[in-house]
Write a protein that binds this DNA or RNA. Sequence first.
RNA 1: GGAGAGGUGGCCGAGUGGCCGAAGGCAGCUGCCUGCUAAGCAGUUAACGGGGAAACUCGUUCCAGGGUUCGAAUCCCUGCCUCUCCGCCA
Length: 421
Amino acid sequence: MLDIKFIRENPELVRTAAARKNTDLDLDGLLRLDKERRENILEVEKLKQQLNTASAEIAKRKKAGENAAAAIAAMKAVSEQIGGMDARLREIESALQAKLLWVPNVPDESVPVGDESNNVTIRTWGEKPAFSFTPAPHWELGEKLGMLDLARGAKISGSGYFVLTGRGARLQRALINFMIDRHVREGYTEIRPPYLVTTQTMTGTGQLPKLADDMYKLGEEDMYLIPTGEVPVTNLHAGETLKAEALPLKYVSYTPCFRREAGAHGKDTRGMMRVHQFDKVELVKIVQPESSFAELELLTADAEDILQALELPYRVRMLATGDLSFAATKCYDLEVWSAGVDNHLEVSSCSNFLDFQARRMNTRYRPAPKEKLRFVHTLNGSGLALPRTMIALLENHQTARGTIRIPEKLRPYFGGEDEIG
RNA sequence: GGAGAGGUGGCCGAGUGGCCGAAGGCAGCUGCCUGCUAAGCAGUUAACGGGGAAACUCGUUCCAGGGUUCGAAUCCCUGCCUCUCCGCCA
């Protein structure tokens, strides 16, 4: 959420930002409500002051045993008037709040303007593997090696679900442990959050109200299945005032993620590339405002470390404004190369949200004693998404014999084995 | 699911209709004092919103939302959460 004062003072900036994010925005309606709100406050507070003064007077007279009937009668009318005006003000405020929740964050100046064709490759790492044969896609490798069962996933849950079996299931477990251990070594605290969260929590990080169609909502309760660990982990500190010396907070969590992927039909649907449920190791940072952009670089590097350790070539892309998510001001995508599907796959999005989420969650800190409270800045990034990491691992590390080579650094997590065959 | 207790400022904790934004204590901050691993004394310390260049000023806030009243932390209703006991349960 943006500060209403900021919007009031920079309407064109906000308008341009929304347009560049391809977001419809009724900015004029919002500003009108803001104006109306302040006018109403001015009016009703005048009356409240009158009422308060009179009430004190009534109390004094009653104590002195004097008659206060006239004043009470007069105040009854004022009180009623205030009641009506307060009701009106509440309506305005909730309408304003509703609109504010739909205003996207402003892209940082360093972000290229345009759609996804304007995304910029910042750097690349590793060499695409060379093969003396045509590399197979993961769905063939996985099925042949008894690691992946797509047919049964579809049977029990429908399209967009898969089953990992045997060494496939074990490999994923190994990867989760591997990732978490590495991040913990970098100073992240491991978190196991709930996977079902409230509407308020979903609103805190910005998934609601805008992305409601992309999420699974429970029928009986007012709860949602998390689309990413970002939601419960960032919201850990919703409504809190943090100590400055506690910052930055760095968390790593493993969670399943649930996505309806509404409107994504027909795109990357083969195998495990785009599914309704997948596992993810997520990094979250809560930091002081001055350091958030530097922390973004560090966070991205921490995610990259996983790909490097797994010997998977990738590129880092800075997203253009049109590709940037609703809440982000700047975002790097990590795209791993995968030989079988002959494509880059997004395995991580590392984003800085500035105080956009903090404002929604109401998470603040006091920079120093006596100083005013400020909103923290929040960041997150995958470290990494499991299915696509597994895809790249299977496809890039496949051998002519049809086996999969386990990268050296992962072997301790896979019983010391160096190959799946 | 059943029974009970409770939710007050950074923390503890008083407060059952009228200068209560809220006693007292702790913690913090500012002085003074003392020269010693600390104590004493005095003062001070909430958030949010409106107006104002500012000084400042006004309003709101005692879990949340309604209600009663001229006036509610205090009374009534609903909800949420926490704790204890019982039941159920991986």
